[in-house]
């Protein structure tokens, strides 16, 4: 059930990306182009999604188990650090270059787009770069520990 619900959520999410225009990179870039012929549509995607999502999160705040009996795993860190801001800035530059973020990248692959596949491969390689430096940082910290 848990896995099936996960598939359903991903599927509905993908439909939303397609219907809203978020899965169309040209439209995303038109939204990000404030100084050009600005297409404000995508601001409304955010508004619609947050309105519905906000209700769901408010409801789940009072629960420790989901309707399927699974634990509620919502992150609670509140610290705004350099890592968060710099990482998000780097993401924003990549988003501004192609108009594609991780969800739409997967939807594009589903449409059979070769460009979507190339973007996804590069994105996974980027994940690999992150994992490599994380592992190196972790082993560096381990060496610093007094034995």
């Amino acid at each position: 059930m848990y896995t099936a619900a996960s598939f359903a959520a991903g599927f509905v999410f993908g439909l939303g990306l397609l219907v809203s225009g978020m899965a169309n990179p040209a439209k995303v870039l038109a939204f990000l182009d404030l100084a050009g012929a600005w297409d404000p549509s995508l601001a409304l995607v955010m508004a619609g999604a947050v309105a519905v999502g906000g209700g769901a999160f408010a409801y789940m705040k009072r629960r420790t188990r989901t309707l399927l009996g699974a634990p509620v795993l919502i992150p609670s860190p509140r610290r705004i650090d350099r890592r968060l801001v710099l990482g998000s800035l780097v993401f924003g530059v990549g988003w501004g270059l192609a108009g594609i973020c991780p969800g739409p990248a997967l939807v594009l692959v589903g449409t059979g787009s070769v460009k979507g596949l190339v973007f996804l491969a590069a994105m996974i390689a980027g994940n690999g770069v992150f994992e490599f430096f994380e592992k190196r940082a972790a082993s560096g910290r381990a060496r610093m520990q007094p034995s």
């Binding site: 848990y2 619900a5 996960s6 359903a8 959520a9 991903g10 599927f11 509905v12 999410f13 439909l15 939303g16 990306l17 397609l18 219907v19 809203s20 225009g21 978020m22 549509s41 995508l42 601001a43 409304l44 995607v45 955010m46 508004a47 619609g48 999604a49 947050v50 309105a51 519905v52 999502g53 209700g55 769901a56 999160f57 409801y59 789940m60 188990r65 989901t66 309707l67 399927l68 699974a70 634990p71 509620v72 795993l73 919502i74």
Partner: peptide, 21 residues
Amino acid sequence: AALIGGVIIGAAVALFVVLNG
């Protein structure tokens, strides 16, 4: 389309937190 699509995305988010947490 943007608003309807946004609501569908919100529904997916809601489904995922309500069922999968």
